[in-house]
Simulated assay, not measured.
Amino acid sequence: MPHLLIDDLHIEVVRKNIRSLRLTVYAPDGRIRVAAPLRTPDATIHEFISLRQAWIRKHQAQFAARPAAAVLTYEAGETHFYQGRPYQLRIHSAAGPARVELQAKEGFLDLHLPANNTAEQREKALSNWYRARLREQLPALAARWEPVVGARAEAWAIKQMRTRWGTCNIRARRIWLNLELIRQPPHCLDYVVVHELVHLHERLHNARFWALMDEFMPDWRAAKQALRSVHLKPCG
């Protein structure tokens, strides 16, 4: 992928069939990416970045200040989150397919799977459980927020993403949600759902987009701020 070096900033440049320049700074490492129309001169991209250096460095500093993400080993006693609440992992030897049981009142996540299991097997079992829980919630989320936003997605899907909480294919009207959202408080999931639905009205993060967010979900800023403090799980 082509790169530009502007002062000490390394810029990834992606040329696409778009009409305007787009700048993104990615968590957790502050990687910088510019999407540019196909025939945009390098000098134009250089000027575009130079005028936005303060904005870029502010976001890189915010990402650098985040606490390091906990390294999970999927051992008994470890803390795992579900819908923003911490649960202690308990592991039980049991025949048959792996299964997870949430003991909400007691504060435990009980993982049942055959003896002599590996960390990878325990991780996969929990990931499958998280995915199933988020998938169960999708119909109710769509039913709640699509009428509010006045936009309907043709399809909803879930995947692990390294840099985004959600994404919207506007042409196909397909919305993807990051699996990690099931670990966050419900209002964060609501925020991402509304955010992606609003993209069906407005593709860009411009004044109109944020005005629509204010209209449909006035308290969206609190959820956005909460998600900024979270290190996304790297994709394997």
Rank of each mutant, 00 (worst) to 15 (best):
P2M: 10
P2Q: 12
L5E: 13
L5A: 11
D7F: 10
I11E: 00
I11S: 02
E12I: 06
E12F: 01
V13N: 03
R15P: 08
N17G: 13
N17P: 10
R19G: 12
R19M: 05
R19A: 12
L21K: 04
R22S: 13
T24G: 01
V25A: 03
V25R: 02
V25T: 03
V25W: 02
Y26T: 08
Y26Q: 14
A27F: 08
P28F: 12
D29M: 08
R33H: 03
V34K: 00
A36S: 04
P37R: 15
L38N: 09
T40L: 04
T40N: 05
T40V: 10
D42N: 11
I45F: 07
I45N: 04
F48G: 09
I49Q: 00
L51G: 12
L51D: 14
R52N: 11
R57T: 06
K58N: 15
H59Y: 15
H59P: 05
Q60N: 08
A61D: 11
A61S: 13
A64Q: 11
A64L: 08
A65L: 02
R66H: 01
A70R: 10
V71M: 07
L72K: 13
Y74Q: 06
G77Q: 05
E78D: 11
T79Q: 15
T79M: 14
T79A: 14
Q83H: 10
R85S: 14
R85H: 13
P86R: 13
Q88P: 04
R90I: 11
I91Y: 08
I91L: 13
H92Q: 12
H92D: 09
E106P: 00
G107K: 02
G107F: 01
L111Q: 02
L113A: 10
N117Q: 12
N117S: 15
R122E: 08
R122G: 09
E123Q: 15
A125P: 00
A125Q: 05
S127L: 10
N128F: 02
W129E: 05
W129L: 05
R131H: 05
R131M: 03
A132Q: 12
A132H: 06
R133E: 15
R133G: 11
L134R: 04
L134I: 03
E136P: 00
P139G: 09
L141A: 07
P147S: 04
V148R: 04
G150S: 01
G150V: 01
E154I: 00
A155C: 03
A157C: 09
I158V: 11
I158C: 04
Q160D: 13
R162V: 02
R162C: 00
T163A: 12
R164L: 07
G166T: 01
G166W: 00
G166V: 00
C168E: 11
L179Q: 09
E180W: 06
L181Q: 08
R183W: 06
R183N: 08
R183A: 14
Q184I: 05
Q184W: 03
P185W: 04
C188P: 01
L189N: 04
Y191C: 01
L197V: 06
L197H: 09
H201M: 06
E202K: 06
L204K: 14
N206V: 08
N206A: 09
D214F: 06
F216Q: 05
P218W: 14
P218Q: 11
P218V: 13
P218E: 12
P218M: 13
A222N: 05
A223W: 04
A223I: 05
S229R: 15
V230W: 03
L232R: 05
P234Q: 12
C235D: 09
C235T: 14
C235Q: 14
G236E: 11
